[in-house]
Design a protein around this nucleic acid. Sequence first.
DNA 1: TTGTAAGCGTTATCAA
DNA 2: TTGATAACGCTTACAA
Lengths: 346, 346
Amino acid sequence: MVTVPPRMIDVAKRADVALSTVSYALNGTRPVSASTRRRIMRAMEELGYRPNALARGLASKRTRILALLFPTPERGLGVTEMEFVTGAADAAREHGYHLMLAPSELRDIHELEHLTGQGLIDGALVMEVRLDDERVDLLGQAGLPFSMIGRTSDPGTISYADIDFEQTTRDAIAHLMELGHRCVGFLNHSPSALSVGYGPTVRAAEGFRRAASDAGIAHIERPCGDNAAAGKAAFHELRASSPELTALVVMNERAVIGVMNALDEISWRVPDDFSIVSIVSSTRVTEMMRPQLTTLEPPSTELGRLGVQILLDQLERPHDEPLPPTQKLLPCRLVVGASSGPPPAR
Amino acid sequence: MVTVPPRMIDVAKRADVALSTVSYALNGTRPVSASTRRRIMRAMEELGYRPNALARGLASKRTRILALLFPTPERGLGVTEMEFVTGAADAAREHGYHLMLAPSELRDIHELEHLTGQGLIDGALVMEVRLDDERVDLLGQAGLPFSMIGRTSDPGTISYADIDFEQTTRDAIAHLMELGHRCVGFLNHSPSALSVGYGPTVRAAEGFRRAASDAGIAHIERPCGDNAAAGKAAFHELRASSPELTALVVMNERAVIGVMNALDEISWRVPDDFSIVSIVSSTRVTEMMRPQLTTLEPPSTELGRLGVQILLDQLERPHDEPLPPTQKLLPCRLVVGASSGPPPAR
DNA sequence: TTGTAAGCGTTATCAA
DNA sequence: TTGATAACGCTTACAA
């Protein structure tokens, strides 16, 4: 047995008012007398009425659907990215919006064009932003409101929420310097992430360079493949070229285990012989390591939520008041583990 | 400058055909002569036409949008869940569908009612299923097509893709027995997961019980909070009550580190003094541990994809041919690490 | 093979 | 404060 869902006209008849009055009562777009409203509400209850989102969207040109653009890199997304997603989904729901997943890979930039043209979404949230990101350009041209988790090299008036990489690298170095380190290396993400201009990779490198230089300490940096083997090799190379190194700041969750293994190989203990700080990395992962890594953990869920809020601020503003963009940088939180200690007296 | 997007009628005029002909050409719902089609396609190109998804959905009653129902447990989702999501999103996209995120917590079962009533989605994919799941009941009543990643205690004719927990626990035990173990314990998820009837928790426990009994070996099982401290405590208790234990099968990614720490405390080495197998757990996580854990890794991405495919099979079948449900159990893959070896000769 | 026109279930304008 | 009614942009009988 298939029953047809009740429509607005059914509610109107039952409440003995005009169709439009029901609409106004529902949206509060126009004053409706208390008694009429009551009758309407009652009729809705009794019929189990649910407004049809499609019809509403077609007529009003607003769907209350947001798209979340996320590329799926070969090796998959991690805990941090999952938290962006759940944070964003949660915030959207709280504001009465839906979040649609739009997996966007390089090749389907025109799938994105498809998305924007469909009239299906009110706005978009862009994840995993590159310094020069064609998705961002496209959204701009399409005239679709959007915000970023991350940012391009020149965000202009685009709203975003991003991690404060300068601050994060500075905090990492400060933590190590307080412990007495004077020669700290930086192990970054892969060369390819660097060369495609993946925001976090580039900004962390710059931040580290700046922070080390400001602190007046030597620093060595290196990109590194996102896997244990690359991490191990990178450590051995770094040590060979810079034997005075006493600590490493690592922004590469997959490589850091390789560094630990490399240390094992030469029988160095952490943190007695060498210190490690994992930055922009979830404690959910670094807690699993022994010794538990000192971590600068990004506020991922918060960033996801913020990205949505920023977007909705734009969307819900009347079109004639443009509203200046919201651009926020959030710091990572230092979680001191057992992987950082005073440098050895070699 | 705001330009209005072209509509179907614009295409029709430009190609000098009727509006409906454009529609038929677009959907292939009715034969259209090659030349007419060409003219239409050309007009679309020239105008940069994109069909309006809302109007299409309103008229056809099909939106090509799927909902992904996932609850967000207090402590967040892990890598495995992220892979469900990306797998599902990917599969949906390949079939020309969108995936909408529907974070559903216990309390908002009526938000779910809202979702189903909106006419916004063609079907749903339910994640994190419990043996007795009210979301499943509700979807059934709402008459919305859906499939599950996981399954209820009695799936009936509902399609699903799930992990084969029987097989997985059997494989874990077999691996340990081959190494010579004869007394293997099982560390499960939290008591609360067990008591709310979370599918994997209950099924893995049953599977383990059965597999151990079939293998004719002693077995001890215990639920355990999802954190390191609980894991450590659980190990000490297990050892106290069953000193003959030589290995542990663990289905608790967050607790397993606690077990390792507990072993450290009593100076037992893995795998020389004690073996560990982590089941239904991503190698992306267990690779980070030292020694790298022997793992039974679930085919998460595959499950996500499969869940969508199964759902689409139902959706795209003509309504008069019901189609028997697809119910699939996928095995986990054994990845032998360095945490399992022969039992000690104590 | 193509055209005509009646919906789909809302919103929002124009009157009253 | 309320009512009629024309969009919204498309699908799909029904006709030709």
